[in-house]
Design a protein around this nucleic acid. Sequence first.
DNA 1: CAGCTTCGTTGATCTAAATCAATGCAGGCA
DNA 2: TGCCTGCATTGATTTAGATCAACGAAGCTG
Lengths: 233, 233
Amino acid sequence: MSDCETCVVKNRAICSALEPAELAALGKLSRKQIISRGQTLVWEGDESLVVANVIKGVLKLAVSATDGREQIVGVIFPSDFIGRPFGKESPYGVTALTDAEVCVFTRTAFDSFAREHSDLQHKLLQRTLDELDRARHWMMLLGRKTASEKIATLLIEISNRLGNAGCSAIAPFLERFEMPMDRQQMGDVLGLTIETVSRQMTKLKEADIIALPDRRTVVIRDRKRLHNIAFAA
Amino acid sequence: MSDCETCVVKNRAICSALEPAELAALGKLSRKQIISRGQTLVWEGDESLVVANVIKGVLKLAVSATDGREQIVGVIFPSDFIGRPFGKESPYGVTALTDAEVCVFTRTAFDSFAREHSDLQHKLLQRTLDELDRARHWMMLLGRKTASEKIATLLIEISNRLGNAGCSAIAPFLERFEMPMDRQQMGDVLGLTIETVSRQMTKLKEADIIALPDRRTVVIRDRKRLHNIAFAA
DNA sequence: CAGCTTCGTTGATCTAAATCAATGCAGGCA
DNA sequence: TGCCTGCATTGATTTAGATCAACGAAGCTG
């Protein structure tokens, strides 16, 4: 079981819907789990046995074809919820992009708890609706945007999500951050190859829109121009 | 208000979660609305004023860029739910692909009803989770599939959805159906141009995998081969 | 039924991004 | 200190699909 009182995401995760007594009850059903970069928590197509809240780290949701082509269909940050509650198999794999820490429930235990706590279910519905909106806007990116628009959009999105994840109302986004994924994974999110990702990144660097102090860190030097590229404004 | 008792989708729409008395109460909040092909029910970015159940017809959810590029992010069939409950603006436009009939609620009225009826909310959650899975698999298509895989997948998907929509447990899918969209709209679903859609369709026709008796109707003559193309098996 | 208009097909050409192929470069390890 | 090993970058070439441009066929309308 987990100690929910001291949990760093308790105010942002779906748990925030619960009263202290309920929270304690839910906490008894959970256990903390450490996952290291590259490790996969759930395999695509497997029976959906667990759901979880992310406490720390970044994870990917991925779908792959028989021939190995992969598409990352979601990137999961702290306080986000993972898993497919209410039956069925997991329609995508979940694997850690960075070392991570999650708060895991067995799906069946979580399901019955959620059925009895309609505030929790409401929060879950809101989150799922938000995820659906995000997924659908990403469909626009995948279907209709050019490589440079895709890269610019990704950089803005990651900087925003990492900024908010820090919980600070102060920093809505970050001008300097660590990419939680390598070039191949960026390609898998954007529907591009590693070479195209690399070329677009150096193009942005040469235009002085971003700086790349090392392979993982990104500095946004001109957010406005980056935004214009991302949204063809 | 609508007469839910005689509604053709009452067993498949989210309303099926409700007891007769509750159903009657919900019915009082709704009104039937006829929409003709091409008419748009909700504009992208507008405040989310209504939600609805689809009774008849097919509608699209679309996101567009400032320069007119459009991506269809969802295709909605009878018994499906439309709209963004619980606040915010509508993140995509909803417009009819065929003449349609919907059962409309003002969003605020629906929201408060749903908050008091946790079975309804549960059903809505299940549906939203299913939609999210569908959207994410479509992301795989948009990001990683070739034009011929895309077309084959679309034909299978539409034939399945139209088959189930007919409510008949008899026909899981249809071997002959009317495409509820034109070539441009097929392109907008798949992230392709109209010309590429057309060429891929004639390629499938020439390989005797499908027949095209007229511009709207499709006959699947070799589902197995079509499936192999769609899923690179 | 002639003349629009809308939609789909087909062909020629172009180009963005994929693919193929080195090369560079930092960190770990002997 | 020098050699792997795993990424990332860069360059050359190819190609799937876009773009540009007719053309054809079906449905309306006066």
